[in-house]
Amino acid sequence: MIYQQLINGLMLGASYALIAIGYTLIFGVLKLLYFAHGEVFMVGAFVGLYLVILGGANIYVALLGAMIACAMLGVIAVYVSVRPVAKNRPLAPLISTIGLTIVLQNLAVYIFGGQQVGFPETVKQELYNFGPITVSSVQIFILAIATTLMVVLWLFIEHTKMGRAIRATAENHETAALLGVNVNRVVLITFMIGSGIAGVAGVLDGIKNSGISPFIGLGAAVKGLIVMLLGGLGNVPGAMVAGLLLGMIEILSAAYIGTTERDFFSFMILILILLYRPTGLFGTRMTEER
């Protein structure tokens, strides 16, 4: 029973981790809490859904389409809600990205309607038994995609030139620029990557819950935020681990304590983290050295 729940928690946690990665990447390079991220996740889910329903696309095409569409949305977000706003006032972009959140949500209601929409069966539902544990093909699919994305992203951040430029920009814009990094471009690329991953997370969430609505963004945003804080601001591997952890905590508390208390535990964790480990579980070195 407990193993079964742990597996379920892992599945849930994988999508939390994917959302939080974008948050934490963007926070890393801009020191900005970017509120519209949950809505990007929602748009990703709809793009995937419509590619499947209207375009007859298979799930891989839907994932790729959602990724690209959301990456583009990330670029738009930078141009409409980040760049035009005063840089030296940290609250201004916070407010403007909340504005973007409202716009995207209403736009989604206008285009897709306010109802919950069913996600067709795109991954053939099969159940596999490993002793006492039952795993569905959908769960394996979600976990495989999420893990692949995280590994690829980690390799990219750690071992490529652009990955190093993103880390350098996250540490200090001025130093990065003096080494030849076009900081504005790196910020744009970071938004594209973070948003693209959120788009994939949206589609995976759609497959898992077999239904989406324009209002799934807020929940995703809040969970992503908790995971980012848990993992440490700007800490990408931290977000990955913290995402899985939060997923397991939620599932276990739902299984052994009660379904209604699930979110209660998430928020308790948020409060405890803020009180006792504001740098996150893994103690990110986010202190500004100026």
């Binding site: 030139k161 190093r164 880390r167 540490e171 990094v181």
Partner: peptide, 22 residues
Amino acid sequence: PEGRAVLKRMTVMDNLRMGAFT
């Protein structure tokens, strides 16, 4: 720059690789 603006959260090797960014 003044104050030894190395990238403190990156390794020595990654700092040097960043030097070759251009």
